[in-house]
Design a protein around this nucleic acid. Structure first.
Lengths: 366, 366
DNA sequence: AGGCTGGGCGAAACCGCTTTCGGATTTCGC
DNA sequence: GCGAAATCCGAAAGCGGTTTCGCCCAGCCT
């Protein structure tokens, strides 16, 4: 989709003289531009004295080589793109700032820039990727929110563009990625609640295409089976990945037949858990005593709900850094297949979980 | 600070042949590169037939001119930078994704890119600005979180770089900006609570250098005076811009002498209000009946606190769009002094406020 | 002393695109 | 039917860097 950019008029754009350039500097230093380039880029075939003179002059004049020109000449691009989907609300919304910070700092340490593009629907998304690649705007991509058989991953692999994915996407061929152990984390949460004495569980599944949603549900099932929970004591509802979703999950779980009301509600996302806490409290239960509710993510606000939320917390910042590390290895030509790290979130216990001591009292309620 | 980038070795970087370029396309089309350029850029001195042939070929070959080369040749930069401070937690944290989306879309509509850099402390910040400018990495800046006498604004003005500020900074000279009417909004909130019957107010001031913190406090004072509240009935505490800050504000307000416990607590930020709600509830009060608590921002999670938070909501997306609009006007040479729009947030009433009917009951509590 | 080696640097080509300038056709006015 | 204007397009000179190539001039060896 070549953008024609016909701005109506046919007037040509006039050139604007920018600041000082390499020729100016060379002239001032009494050397050839090539020598300035050598000095600035740390090459060795230049006298130390000359280098220092040039470097000094560069600081003095606040000279900074034009990154555009440099990259053009080098035939390299020193930019990494992060395409942020804003349709599927949040996912890492609350961490976005941390995540961006991790990416940007790690990139900046390597003299690279971070290009951020946003995108609403999937078709636009793939189109944006295409355009960014064709226009040579970036050397690689950070991909998040991976779906099963993700078209972006196929595209990037086909075009042989470096990338790294946060999350897994159950593709046939391997690709570089980093993921949380969603499965083990949720299963571990079930273990934890089981150890507290819970028997009747509910899981709030996410209406979300992303792979992590599937993996977390599998983790729940794993926890159910390895703790030998009775089928009758296990309920699963499926709702949108929002606080409102959490509320409606509670509605279906608690307002229907009251036979198998759960004492433990496992939510695969904090925002959902927060909605659930609100809905359960509104029904007169004491969250953390009558009913345990747990989340996943570790959003800051989770510490300030009533009661504060017990959750699985992800090391957002570290994730960002590692992603960049991996991406650079790939850009340097390392075998992409070797990157498949999995990190474990940590259980942060606050007060939304506890032993189901008051189960009967809870049952007796409206 | 010229980055020397001596990567140890002195090996030269090898050039990597990128995809198809304008010469290839020209050859295929049987024309000169200049003609291709004309065709793609919508100039009129080219036969319509030729243009269409070239355009067709471009789509077919998925040709997209190298943005680096194009910008170098044009002497223009089609990138706008957004430097995100991650030290002073949040400010627009919860909206970051919306805000970025607004910026990125508005920029993309004008064929510009969004460069995001993050920065921890103030010195680093000014250094980053310098570097971005000297290296010609961006044509303009979006500045948020403005402080009084903001050094960034001075720098940008001195260097004559286009920029637009979200927020005001009480500088001597005028500069292009857009702001919420913080003052009127908070004053309006006081009016609202006063109309509900509240007499005893508390304001949670922010330990924050940013101008908006000052303006909101002034707004509170305005509300106090125009509703003729008694000095004895007004308290102000100053805390960090976090939920923990909100909690500690409540501690000082409620745990001291119980003589002048407020019935209305005005918070200038939702995160703070959420901490306050939690702390007030924990002390056995019924928020919304015994005590009214209000926020400012309109964070999504505010709808799911217990009770849901009444707040002043900012149109994040629109703000982003307008900022970009203004920035482009400035880049096109419009007089920067003329841009000083002020927008009004809207009151979103949920359930954390109400008439202080139960005041006496509240007083009787512990 | 002369040849060899290699460190230090300049000249020039090039990265991929834009834009000026002017040449070659057409088209048009009279 | 002819000169002038208009139209279309190619050649070439940049944009601001990097990198190759090779020159020049020590310094070293024999």
């Amino acid at each position: 989709m070549t953008s024609t950019k016909n701005n109506g008029s046919s007037r040509r754009v006039k050139r604007r003289r920018t600041g000082i350039n390499i020729n100016d500097l060379a002239e001032r230093a009494g050397v050839a531009p090539a020598t300035v380039s050598r000095a600035l880029n740390g090459y060795t075939d230049i006298a130390e004295a000359t280098r220092e003179r040039i470097l000094g002059l560069a600081v003095e004049l606040n000279y900074q080589p034009s990154s555009r020109a440099r990259q053009l000449a080098r035939g390299r691009v020193e930019t990494v793109a992060f395409v942020l989907p804003v349709n599927s609300r949040n996912t890492h919304d609350p961490f976005l700032s941390d995540f961006l910070d991790a990416l940007a700092s790690a990139l900046s340490a390597r003299d690279h820039d971070l290009l951020v593009a946003t995108v609403r629907d999937d078709e636009e998304e793939i189109e944006v990727y295409r355009r960014l690649i064709a226009a040579g705007k970036c050397a690689g991509f950070i991909v998040t929110n991976s779906r099963d058989n993700d078209p972006r991953i196929c595209l990037l692999r086909d075009l042989n563009v470096p990338f790294v994915v946060y999350g897994r996407a159950s593709s046939d061929a391997p690709y570089p990625h980093l993921d949380m152990d969603n499965e083990a984390a949720i299963a571990g949460m079930v273990d934890h609640l089981f150890a507290l004495g819970h028997q009747r569980f509910a899981y709030v599944d996410l209406e979300e295409e992303a792979t992590f949603a599937r993996l977390r549900r599998i983790g729940f099932e794993l926890g159910v089976s390895r703790n030998a929970l009775l089928d009758d004591n296990v309920a699963v509802v499926r709702v949108p990945h929002t606080s409102a979703g959490g509320q409606s999950a509670i509605a279906t779980l608690f307002d229907g037949g009251n036979s198998h009301r759960p004492t433990a509600v496992v939510c695969p996302a904090d925002v959902v858990a927060i909605g659930a806490i609100q809905a359960v409290s509104a029904r007169g239960y004491d969250v953390g005593r009558d009913v345990s509710i747990t989340g996943y993510d570790g959003v800051p606000l989770g510490a300030y709900t009533a009661p504060p939320l017990t959750t699985m917390s992800q090391p957002t910042r570290e994730i960002g850094q590692q992603l960049v590390d991996i991406l650079f290895r790939v850009m340097e030509g390392a075998d992409p297949a070797q990157f498949d790290a999995v990190m474990m979130p940590t259980l942060v216990r606050r007060s939304s979980d506890g032993s189901p001591t008051l189960v009967e009292a809870a049952r007796a309620l409206p």
